[in-house]
């Protein structure tokens, strides 16, 4: 794939924690408009990679280029404002805010976040607020959370929190959405549903997806491209079919009992 088709290009990222070398050289690209999977056994460094790419941690070496900009080591809000939104492996909703409010936080660069406007020109953000509200309600309807809109987010079930996480990310209108195990711990029906949402979003809004996923069936079904990681490095990239033929990948991941047990359950 040509580099100019890549929305995200990661080159030789390294990061260690004390003696633990979590990333030892991750290099890959994510094509614009694709749904790309990032797979690898537990502890391979996937979450660390997401953290470093999204600015939550600084890399010790390597570079991250997003949408033509070098964002290496930029703080997370900067990365987010450039259009890269990530979700968390363990759902992290804003517990004591309502579901609707959780979504209303997401739109970026809100006029009503400036103190001066709030104090002296509140009418200037009303129209914008209304537009965000309309969209939030539609997104909630789309995700089947409309009836829950005025409930506290902490009162949702685990699966609903997963949906909220994705709905909230959608509200931010990202160019690239990085999902850290969005399907972990939810039932098969909901997995199908989340997958449909993701594909529909790519269709409708042109969002690119990079998702960490353990469930290889899901990956096979919905992802255009797969990146394989093991012990802090990217091993290979390709379609699922290509990777099945790659002996290195097969020995590191696809067989040998390294596949996460959660994927089966």
């Amino acid at each position: 794939m040509a580099a100019d088709d890549e929305i995200l290009s990661v080159h030789d990222l390294r990061r260690s924690f004390g003696g633990v070398r979590a990333l030892t050289g991750a290099t890959f690209g994510v094509g614009r408009g694709t749904v790309t999977a990032l797979i690898g056994p537990n502890g391979a460094g996937k979450t660390t990679l997401v953290n470093v790419v999204a600015g939550a941690m600084k890399p010790q070496a390597g570079s991250v280029v997003f949408d033509g900009r070098d964002i290496t080591g930029r703080p997370s809000h900067d990365v987010a404002l450039n259009g890269l939104i990530r979700t968390f492996q363990i759902s992290r909703e804003y517990p004591a805010m309502t579901v609707l409010e959780n979504l209303m936080v997401s739109p970026q660069g809100q006029t009503g976040e400036h103190l001066w406007t709030v104090l002296f020109r509140p009418s200037r953000y009303r129209a914008e607020e209304r537009a965000h509200l309309e969209r939030a309600l539609e997104v909630l309807a789309d995700f089947g959370l409309y009836e829950k809109r005025n409930d506290y987010a902490r009162s949702l079930s685990g699966g609903q929190k997963r949906l909220l996480e994705l709905a909230r990310a959608v509200m931010a209108r990202p160019k690239l959405l990085v999902l850290d195990e969005p399907m972990a711990g939810i039932n098969p029906a909901l997995i199908t549903r989340l997958a449909e949402h993701i594909l529909a979003l790519r269709e409708r809004e042109g969002t690119t997806f990079l998702m960490v996923e353990h469930n290889l069936d899901v990956v096979e079904d919905m992802c255009d491209n797969v990146i394989v990681m093991a012990v802090g490095r990217t091993l290979a990239t390709g379609t699922m079919a290509e990777l099945r033929e790659n002996p290195e990948v097969v020995s590191a991941y696809l067989t040998g009992g390294l596949v996460d047990v959660r994927a089966q359950g």
């Binding site: 809000h77 968390f88 804003y94 709030v118």
Partner: peptide, 20 residues
């Protein structure tokens, strides 16, 4: 919206940061 951002930060600073 400013107050909402404040509360989001109270609830989870890292997440608010990740949302820009």
């Amino acid at each position: 919206p400013l107050g909402r951002a404040m509360r989001a930060i109270r609830e989870d600073l890292d997440v608010a940061e990740a949302y820009g």
